[in-house]
Every structure is written in C-alpha cells, then in structure tokens.
Design a protein around this nucleic acid. Structure first.
Length: 139
DNA sequence: GCCAACGTTGGC
DNA sequence: GCCAACGTTGGC
C-alpha cells in the first residue's frame, strides 16, 4: 500500500466534515497543479493518506482511505484534472504539527517540509511511521 | 497582513 | 521557446 498526504484548509473542508461524510466519503476535487494531479492519479483504492489542515492548525489531524480510483474531476471545465474519492479512517489522537515534523530528522525529506505548496504528495513508509508515532496512532 | 515560492499566462 | 507579469498558496 502506498502512503500520501492531502491538504485542506479547514475553513473550506475540515476533518470534522470529512468524518461527517462517513463511509460514503467525498470526492477530492479541485486539484489544479500537474504534479499534484500526477500523485492523485497514482493513488490506488485502499491507499492511505494523512489529512493535513493548512493555514489554520498546520497539523495532521486524521487518516483517510482512498475508496474510488482516479477519474475526471467534474469541477474542472478544462477536463485536464482528476479526482479520487476518500473517506475518514482514523482521527489522530494527538495532532502532529508542521513544527513537530520539522523537528524530526527522519522527516527532513518530506515534501510537506520542502514544498509547502504541494497539496497532494507522497509519503515514505518511514515518514508515515514517524508521524503515526508522534500522533499516538497505533495502526 | 506580509511575503516568498512557485505555477500559469501571454506577449514577443 | 523565453521570460516578465501576475495570481495563488500557505507559512510566519
């Protein structure tokens, strides 16, 4: 299974809303960057992703699971971009902040640290494990 | 609120 | 195909 990180501004779509969406989940639309699109397109059903609150919070607050494969994004009139569907899987007991991650030598290569603008990004398995440990997540 | 980083657009 | 101008993201 591959690991990812997706960002959302809680003012527009928060973890609480993600949980509210339940098992049906939500379409992860609105990606308009070609690198982020490439990552979305590489996601497989069953992959997991950290759910990160940008701007407000700046922390990883949950884990989502990919429940529908890459397909056209209905909100994109150009037809160039796509979406996947995700559902909330676990909350993170102790949210892991960007500052926490910056303090971890094992996370120095994370895209979150090095490219703050990438809204969909891959996470290495060792980075996944570190963040789960920091978040008191037992998986 | 500011600004750095970076992606996109459009003139040439 | 280059690059200046502009818009957006997102940390601080």
């Amino acid at each position: 299974m591959a690991y990812w990180l997706v960002k959302s501004e809680p003012a527009s779509w928060s973890w609480a809303m993600m949980v509210e969406a339940g098992a049906a989940g939500t379409a992860w639309t609105g990606v308009r960057n070609h690198v982020a699109k490439k990552h979305l397109a590489a996601m497989l059903v069953g992959d997991h992703a950290f759910f990160y609150h940008s701007n407000e919070g700046k922390e990883i607050v949950g884990i989502v699971e990919v429940i529908a494969p890459y397909a056209a994004d209905p909100t994109d009139e150009s037809g160039r971009f796509g979406k996947v569907d995700v559902r909330a899987l676990h909350a993170v007991p102790r949210p892991v902040t960007l500052a926490d991650i910056r303090d971890e030598p094992g996370c120095a290569e994370m895209v979150l640290v090095n490219n703050s603008r990438m809204s969909v990004q891959p996470v290495r398995s060792q980075e996944w494990a570190i963040v789960c440990r920091l978040g008191k997540l037992i998986i």
